[in-house]
Design a protein around this nucleic acid. Structure first.
Lengths: 197, 197
DNA sequence: ACCTGCGTATGATGGTCGTCATATGAGCAC
DNA sequence: GTGCTCATATGACGACCATCATACGCAGGT
């Protein structure tokens, strides 16, 4: 019963484990950074031992690339969910409120990959940067599509600015060691980016 | 003749070396990140060997805190210099043009510490975060003072948004592996933040 | 010229990390 | 049930790192 019985091969055991490792790694890199995430730590967190790692990935870098892609998809999913749960007119505002929520500032593990890893990106392997760039473009397009002036000239530019402002506010709010300043940054960006709500 | 002769004790040899190490480290962390910067690498880059390190710092973390403070001061200095070189009316614009210049995107080593280290900040030791937070506040205040609406209500909030937007644009422009997108982010933020230059 | 202190170099230690060779053990075909 | 296959575990190797004990050598005073 468990896996498909008759025809469909279904995901092999190895593929299931592989995805579990990638998912674990996608959270680990957002928590500890690329450089701060070790092979053994990920494997243990996925309920395995470090030895079998190279049966799943050609190298640590290869795993980081898959993890970065997965982390980017996670962040996108969070925004898309927030947008889908709001009336179309309020989709952009809902995304921004989710992105700049106190919760997102406090727990990076399941949030935006660019905010959690942005300043480490320039040093990463080409594979890693390529995956992250693709996800960043998806995120910008998502914001552009939900903007009220979609299709009008300059709309894409405005989406870039919106993303930059939200990203910068999140990075700054997380970086700073002063809860008052952190909240001030969050609220200032939110008030600026949402019309009057 | 070389060092002060008569009264003034002048900086001792150790203090000179100490400052050289800190300056080297301030550039190293912006190039390689907190985690990617080793004790031996810094000492060698400063023309020394790794052994004498603990005659200057109580620990690697202590050095990182001093380096973070110095890196923050560097970024501030760059903005202050840009502002001072422009007529008062154009000071804010000059700072933003320097901050969002192609050069600043390409070489992080001597630029803004929060952009270079932002996503690694939440994991750093309290000393390090405290130094970075203090410098961040200085930077925000610098922007606020050069804004045209200084003193009016909401000016500080607007400065927060300006800083967040510039910071986010810089982080995003650096993170992305596509020069076209990098330039687009830079220019979009610049056009948005400068009235009509 | 010799002695004295302090700043720096040499070298070692314990720990962690990425990587890989090989052993173990579970699931399936017959 | 017996044997085969593949996923995972065990264990080891070399490299690198932070930290520290100790040896060296260059300054200035006499």
């Amino acid at each position: 019963m468990s896996t498909g019985t008759s025809k469909r091969p279904g995901p092999s055991r190895k593929e299931v484990t592989h995805q579990r490792i990638v998912e674990t790694a996608a959270r680990a890199i957002r928590r500890s950074g690329y450089g701060g995430t070790g092979v053994a730590e990920i494997m243990q967190e996925a309920g395995l031992t470090h030895g079998g790692f190279y049966a799943h990935f050609e190298s640590r870098e290869g795993m980081l690339a898959e993890a970065a892609d997965r982390a980017g998809a996670d962040g996108m999913g969070m925004l898309a969910r927030a947008a889908a749960a709001a009336p179309p007119k309020k989709a952009l505002e809902a995304m921004l409120r989710a992105y700049l929520s106190k919760e997102h500032v406090e727990v990076a593990e399941t949030g935006c990959a660019i905010a959690a890893l942005g300043s480490e990106m320039p040093r990463q392997a080409p594979k890693v940067r390529r995956a992250a760039t693709r996800r960043a473009k998806e995120m910008i397009d998502l914001v552009a599509r939900q903007s009220p002036d979609w299709g009008q000239p300059g709309a894409h530019e405005r989406a870039l600015v919106t993303v930059a402002t939200a990203l910068g506010a999140l990075v700054l709010a997380r970086a700073v060691d002063d809860p008052k300043l952190s909240d001030a940054v969050r609220h200032a960006a939110l008030n600026h980016l949402t019309p009057a709500g």
